[in-house]
C-alpha cells in the first residue's frame, strides 16, 4: 500500500482533540459529570494509539515471529482483563476460562483467514496478523463481556425461577437456558447490526482506512467482507464459549446454584 494517506502533524492532532475539550466543557457547565471520564478516556486513547504506532513500526522492522506471537498473547491478556472488569459481581474462577474462551476462537479464526483466505506469507507477517488479530480479539471481547455481564445479572434477578426449576429436577443447563439465550442475544446484537448495516449505514473502519491510504475501494470492500465475517464468526464462537463457561461457574461441583444470595 504505497502512496498512502496525507500525514497528520502534531498541530493537526491538537486541532482534532479540541472537539473533545468542547464536549468536556459542555459537560462541566451543565453538571452532567461526564468530563472526567471523557478526558481520561481520550488521554488513554491518544497515548495508547501513539505508543502502538511506535511499537508496530518497531515490530514491522524486525519481523520476528516470536515477538509477533508475544504481542498477540499480550493482546489476549489485556482483552481478558477488560472483559472481566466489565462484569459486575463475577463468580470466582473465570480468569483462565475467560482467557481460553477469547484465545481459542480468536487465534483460530485469525490464522485461518491470514493463511488460507488472504494467503499471507510468512504466516506471522505482523502487517496483516496484528491488525486482524486486534480486530477479532477486540470485537470478541466486547461481545463476551456483554454476554457475561448480562448472564450473571439475569441469573441473579431470576434466581427464584431458577431455584423452582432446579427443585423440579431441571439439570443446571435447563434451569438457566432462557437467561443464557437472552445473554447471548444481547452480546451478539452489535455484531449482527454491524453485519446487516455495513455499507448502508456506515463504512466500516478498516475499509475507511484502506480507502484513505489509497487502496481501490472494491479491493477494500473485499477485505472488509472477509474481516466482517471473521469478526462475526469469532464473536459468535467466543460468546457461545462465554455462555458455557459462564453458566457452569454459577453452579458448584455438587450442582448447587451459587448466585442466589
Amino acid at each position: 500500500m504505497s502512496g498512502g494517506a496525507i500525514p497528520i502533524s502534531w498541530v493537526d492532532m491538537l486541532l482534532a482533540s479540541s472537539f473533545i475539550f468542547v464536549s468536556a466543557a459542555i459537560s462541566l457547565f451543565t453538571g452532567l459529570g461526564l468530563h472526567r471520564s471523557l478526558l481520561w478516556a481520550a488521554l488513554r486513547g491518544i497515548l495508547q494509539l501513539t505508543m502502538l504506532g511506535f511499537a508496530l513500526r518497531w515490530i514491522f522492522s524486525i519481523s520476528s515471529p516470536l515477538i509477533v506471537l508475544g504481542f498477540i498473547a499480550l493482546m489476549l491478556v489485556f482483552a481478558n482483563h477488560t472483559m472481566l472488569s466489565r462484569v459486575r459481581r463475577p463468580p470466582k474462577g473465570l480468569y483462565f476460562r475467560g482467557l481460553a474462551a477469547l484465545a481459542v476462537p480468536g487465534v483460530t479464526v485469525t490464522f485461518a483467514v491470514t493463511t488460507m483466505v488472504i494467503g499471507v506469507d510468512p504466516a506471522t507477517d505482523p502487517r496483516y496478523l496484528l491488525p486482524l488479530a486486534g480486530m477479532v480479539i477486540g470485537n470478541s471481547m466486547s461481545a463476551m463481556s456483554v454476554v457475561l455481564d448480562r448472564l450473571y445479572s439475569d441469573l441473579r434477578a431470576n434466581s427464584g425461577r431458577i431455584a423452582t426449576l432446579l427443585a423440579l429436577g431441571a439439570k443446571p443447563r435447563e434451569a438457566v437456558w432462557r437467561e443464557a439465550q437472552q445473554a447471548l442475544r444481547a452480546g451478539m446484537i452489535p455484531t449482527l447490526n454491524s453485519m446487516s448495516a455495513a455499507g448502508l449505514v456506515f463504512i466500516p473502519g478498516m475499509m475507511t482506512g484502506q480507502i484513505l491510504s489509497g487502496t481501490d475501494p472494491s479491493i477494500a470492500a473485499r477485505y472488509q467482507v472477509v474481516i466482517l465475517l471473521m469478526i462475526s464468526a469469532a464473536t459468535a464462537m467466543g460468546s457461545v464459549l462465554a455462555i458455557y463457561i459462564g453458566y457452569r461457574r454459577s453452579f458448584s461441583a455438587s450442582d448447587v446454584f451459587t448466585l442466589d444470595r
Binding site: G160, R161, A163, T164, A167, L168, G169
Partner: peptide, 29 residues
Amino acid sequence: AHLWRRKVTLLPFPPVPLGDTIEEDLLAP
C-alpha cells in the same frame, strides 16, 4: 442431584410462574 430433586421436590417461596398461561405453567415440569 437432578434425579434426587425429581423425587424430593421443593416448591420455593415466593412462587414464580413457569409459563405464560396456566396450562403452560402446569406443563413446564
